[in-house]
Design a protein around this nucleic acid. Structure first.
Length: 279
DNA sequence: GACCAGGTGTCCG
DNA sequence: CGGACACCTGGT
């Protein structure tokens, strides 16, 4: 068990920030979460409004993986401080979502996940991913008897018939082709990792089923290119409604994607309305 | 049952 | 280049 204290680390906010799909509240125990990533399951506990996060893993596993996964060497407070006080909307958004971080997730999983995300909504995306994992991931058991499945490897997803009945709709052929490229070695993810942002974007855009938005999401969430700024309908709506159609990323050079997350989380979870409803 | 959200491919100008 | 439209599915 490892305890982490950090004022910019909130599991619930991260789970609701739209960047990950396999981090879910544990239905049996309050304030606990279960994460599946890198072929591992991690239980997490965080009391509401606490800056302490408890990770149920060994110190070694934390040092080798989860510290990196949660990007714990980066100071997110420094990003938030770059928001000009006269930007009321973003100031509020960073207050509401101050515990958001950009995770270091697996590129392959993110490529598939964000292909599924196109023209789709989050519950459906999660559902499709779970179906894929249950059908083609590796089955595992926790010490207390829970069953869980790892994310499938590329070679498991390269036959189109295996992608039926996963709720993927027309996206099945995109995933089939991606899986085939990765499995056969035609596409080497290690090569993508060392590319510049522009090279990586071009490479992603050349793939069947990946357009501008998905490419930017894969860059930000799968390759940790935090200068990437995906514009989905939510972001476009906010730019339209709050910024008169033009949002300058000038104050956020090099970490535009972090700012995007604050906007997305704030907009998507409609938190001010919820606050009012609670009163 | 009609209609809608959501991002990309495709076709057309 | 930009605009129009089809594509699947699950939700109203």
């Amino acid at each position: 068990m490892v305890k982490v204290r950090n004022d910019n680390f909130n599991i619930e906010q991260i789970a609701k920030s739209g960047q990950c799909f396999r981090l879910a509240p544990n239905p049996n125990e309050a304030h606990t979460w279960t994460l599946i990533a890198y072929d591992k399951l991690l239980d997490i506990k965080q009391e509401p409004n606490s800056n302490e996060v408890i990770l149920f893993c060994s110190q070694q596993e934390f040092d080798e993986l989860w510290k990196y996964y949660f990007d714990l060497d980066t100071d997110y407070g420094a990003y938030i401080e770059c928001v000009p006080p006269d930007d009321i909307y973003l100031t509020r958004a960073t207050q509401i979502g101050s515990g958001i971080r950009i995770l270091n997730q697996e590129p392959w999983e993110m490529m598939v996940s964000f292909m599924i995300s196109q023209n789709n909504n989050i519950p459906r995306i999660k559902h499709s991913i779970e179906l894929l994992c249950q059908a083609y991931g590796e089955k595992n058991h926790t010490s207390d008897g829970r069953v869980w499945f790892s994310f499938p490897k590329a070679c498991q997803l390269m036959e189109i018939e295996k992608l039926q009945n996963m709720g993927l709709g027309y996206r099945d052929k995109y995933i089939q082709q991606l899986a085939e490229s990765v499995c056969t070695g035609k596409l080497n993810i290690q090569d993508l990792k060392v590319m510049t942002d522009n090279e990586l974007r071009t490479a992603l855009l050349s793939m069947y089923g990946i357009g501008t938005k998905v490419a930017n999401c894969i860059m930000l969430f799968g390759f940790h290119r935090i200068a990437s700024f995906p514009k989905d309908v939510w972001i476009k709506r906010i730019i339209e409604q709050q910024y008169g159609g033009h949002f300058s990323t000038e104050p956020y050079k090099g970490f535009e994607g972090v700012i995007q997350q604050y906007i997305f989380y704030y907009a998507m979870n409609k938190l001010d309305l919820k606050d009012k409803a609670d009163i």
